[in-house]
Design a protein around this nucleic acid. Structure first.
Lengths: 253, 253
DNA sequence: CTCAATTTGTTCGTATGTATG
DNA sequence: ACATACATACGAACAAATTGA
């Protein structure tokens, strides 16, 4: 049984190249997070952990020191290592799966517009999406909460529409501006999400590690003429988002 | 500008502890994946990459060697490094956001049941979910595609219901069995998704690196008595899933 | 109070991996 | 290819604090 587990850790090490002590810390942190070890509990001894993960004592200690610096555990010589608290669950951002709730959730958001250097990229479109507009206005912006950025948006808006209210589009989220304008009639709106990894620009913008997990939204809005009036790529921190889906009454959440 | 970027990479290095050459390789792989460098293209020279990432030449070479071993690039002395192919996009699994499409998508799936050692865990429930059943049958299983596992399910089914057709529940996905049984009347079904990281058991089951990004589904089904008859925690490989959401006609996709 | 068992803390030497110039 | 520095990981031994017999 232990042999198996040893091989596991070696395998996963080969697959990730993450230092062993970081991996061990991640596993232990997970056990605290899921409540298997509660505040006040004594966690396994160094010796047990050594055997479980088949790593050296020093490696286990490095892992536990990481957790200690995070304030999750406290170590006491001769007694053991004790859980002092659980990492907070930060999945506060419920991603919307329906138009009205989406607009509702972003209507008061204030985007922090970032400067765009160089030529703006073309919007990522597939033929299915609709007819591209002749020109697009391009904006990069951050969404923040309590000063902390959590989403990085790259938005294309039909230039003709943008020019009618440029200030609105810079002060509010572009989508909520579109939704409230009488001169735009939205016929289709489609969104996809995938799990991605932070590239350099995103990592810098959101204060994440390069390659940290993200949720990548790709949103396309088409008006009644069949013209794509809005294309957005929005990258969310992976550790703050969640989907809540009512399977039987979808569209109300 | 370069100074900024240098600091960026140092920052992200501090945040992740992933070796620099792996991070550089990740960025370059990303550029190939998103099509910025297409098959046949010559990528930046070592010198350009050195300057861009502010790392030593050897570090860049280590990164490119990784990509070469993956079959993404080919190096030719005196000429440069050329893209030979893009990593395939594997987001083939469209996660359902509505009951009928969910059942449709899993009705022909065959779960590979895994042995359960030790006492089965209690289902993770919050008071809101409903009244727990007196007993639950517990099953762990893998979903595979072309022999490769992509999802790891831990399922609780009301023991009373399970006992009426134990074989069905082991040969087919529990949810589709529930959906087709006349003696079960489903009143509510709720699902949440978060982005998680593979723990040891999951990494082993899905052949992932420890801590690799995953999509974690938590699904709760309640019958007309208000009893929770089904609770599932399903962990998907993060690199194969996607959500497709029609915002204006939610519930049809 | 002493002794032994348990548990974390510390140190050494060695080997390998990572990164620089 | 080389010299250098630092991080990671191992195994083993020993030290120090705690507990209970």
């Amino acid at each position: 049984m232990n042999k198996k587990q040893a091989q596991r850790l070696a395998d996963t090490y080969e697959r990730s190249r993450t230092p062993l002590y970081v991996q061990v810390a991640d596993v232990l942190r997970g056990r605290i997070q899921e409540g298997r070890w509660q505040a006040g509990d004594k966690i396994s001894t160094l010796e047990e952990l050594e055997k479980e993960f088949e790593v050296a004592r020093v490696t286990v200690r490095q892992a536990i020191m990481l957790l200690q610096r995070e304030g999750l555990v406290q170590r006491r010589q001769g007694k053991g290592t004790f859980v002092t608290g659980a990492p907070p669950d930060n999945r506060w951002l419920k991603l919307a799966t329906e138009w009205n709730s989406l607009i509702e959730s972003i209507k008061d958001n204030i985007p922090h517009v970032l400067p765009q250097e160089g030529a703006p990229p073309k919007p990522r479109l597939v033929v299915d999406d609709g007819m591209p507009a002749t020109n697009y206005a391009y904006m990069k912006s951050l969404q923040t909460r309590e000063g902390e950025p959590y989403a990085f948006a790259r938005v294309h808006v039909d230039q003709a529409i943008f020019d009618r209210a440029p200030k609105s589009f810079l002060n509010r989220t572009a989508l909520s501006v579109l939704a409230t304008r009488q001169d735009v009639h939205i016929a289709r709106a489609h969104q996809t999400f995938v799990i991605g990894a932070a590239d350099m620009e995103t990592a810098q913008a959101l204060g994440l590690a390069l390659n940290a997990p993200t949720a990548e939204a790709h949103c396309v809005v088409v008006d009644e003429r069949g013209v794509v009036v809005y294309v957005a790529d929005i990258t969310y921190r992976g550790d703050c988002v969640r989907f809540d889906i009512d399977l039987l009454h979808a569209g109300t959440g």
